[in-house]
Computed example of a mutant assay.
Amino acid sequence: MSLALGTRHGCVMQSEIRTMSIACAKAGGINLSQGVCDTPVPREVSGSVARAVAEGCNTYTHYAGLKALREAIALKQKRFSGQDVDPESEVIVSAGATGAMYCAFQALLSPGDEVIVFEPFYGYHVSTLVAAEAVPVSVPLALPGWSFTAHDLERAVTSRTRGIIVNTPANPSGKVFSREDLEVIAAFAERYDLFVFTDEIYEHFLYDGHRHTSFASLPGMKARTITVSGFSKTFSITGWRLGYAICDARWASAIGYFNDLVYVCAPSPLQAAVAEGMRLLDDSYYRALSREYVKKRDRFCDALRQAGLSPHVPEGAYYVLADTGDLPGRSATRKAMYILEKTGLASVPGSAFFSEGRGDDLVRFCFAKEDAVLDEACRRLALLRQGS
């Protein structure tokens, strides 16, 4: 038989995050690998689903999403970033932030276009670029502080460079790009006429006084920025698959057409529930997220230190990269499996977030867990130090 897989299948192989989640399930462990965020859904959001279904919100929506949700997104962007957004022409609701990013890449990139990504990167950004037949080009961030310079960007640019991805707060590093960082990127994007694709889904998870600056709010940047975010993390609804893109109307229509082709629309009753939840929740809810999660971060990082795994303490998001110290194994995958075998805790090999040959001395943990689960995870980490 001469049948064979197509050439694109290699870019969508199972991620190491899902691989570790499956291994964790088999072991009956605690999954700190995937960012599933199993904290409670706010009642203002969850309580609106049944009502939306009962009121008949069960059919296809406009390909760009329910008008009420697009209006809520525009109001939120104005409230938190000061940006004026037209909900009729500049917002596309999609099947999660990854869905919005995928449609943006399909609409705006051509085969062979190069897109700069900061490393460590979120693997789905890279895989989604490759699925669009674009070429990711890494710019490594330097420790301490996951820093970069304008010179680092200049070394990565070529005549084929079409865009750059900015993930802030970042997965997996927890870096919050400062306004100064973003101004360096803005000058670079303007100099080379690049699209800037931002992933801002962790915008409300901020610690130690760090502030989120939405890239499109910088002077002159709105026209070239595709702002991607969503509700999975903020409302603990990762399985609802609701995200969005905000951008200039010139790009939004093309992104919307791909959204229609691939997804038709995001689930309509869930869109309605989130729109209602956003209307009911005030700013105190979002501020409370940072207060709640900084406690989780600090408790978990302390446990990592006591276990001999030195953490790179995140400024935002809800992941922590930790040095593997003297754990056995030559690869990050082997070290992550050792942790799972010894403690029942699943992490992600650091190599999943770096180009080949890097990241083998790191693992990533997710601390978006209810307190009782996180306490048990901290207790189990101590088994590494005990050598049990």
Rank of each mutant, 00 (worst) to 15 (best):
E292P: 00
E292D: 11
Q306V: 01
D302E: 14
P311G: 02
F300P: 02
I339W: 02
L340Y: 09
P314W: 07
R330N: 14
D302F: 06
G325N: 06
V348F: 01
A303N: 07
D360C: 11
Q306G: 07
K295E: 14
A317H: 03
G325W: 04
L304T: 00
C301L: 05
P349Q: 03
R334G: 10
S290H: 06
R330I: 08
V348H: 00
R358Q: 10
P311Q: 03
H312V: 04
P311A: 03
T343W: 08
E292Y: 09
S310N: 08
F367W: 12
L321V: 00
R297D: 09
G359N: 11
R291T: 10
R364V: 13
I339F: 02
R334S: 14
D323V: 00
E341D: 15
V348W: 01
D298L: 02
L321Q: 06
P314Y: 11
S347P: 05
D361G: 15
F354S: 09
D323F: 05
E356S: 15
A336H: 03
K296R: 15
D298T: 03
F353S: 07
A288T: 05
A288Q: 14
R291K: 09
G316Q: 01
Y318E: 01
Q306H: 12
M337S: 10
E341I: 01
E356L: 15
S351I: 04
C301E: 05
Q306Y: 06
G308K: 12
S310M: 09
R299C: 05
K335H: 05
A352L: 02
A346W: 07
F367I: 12
E292Q: 12
F367L: 11
A288L: 13
S290L: 07
V320H: 03
A317M: 11
D360Q: 02
P328N: 10
E356Y: 13
V313F: 07
L309D: 09
F354K: 13
V294Y: 01
D302Y: 01
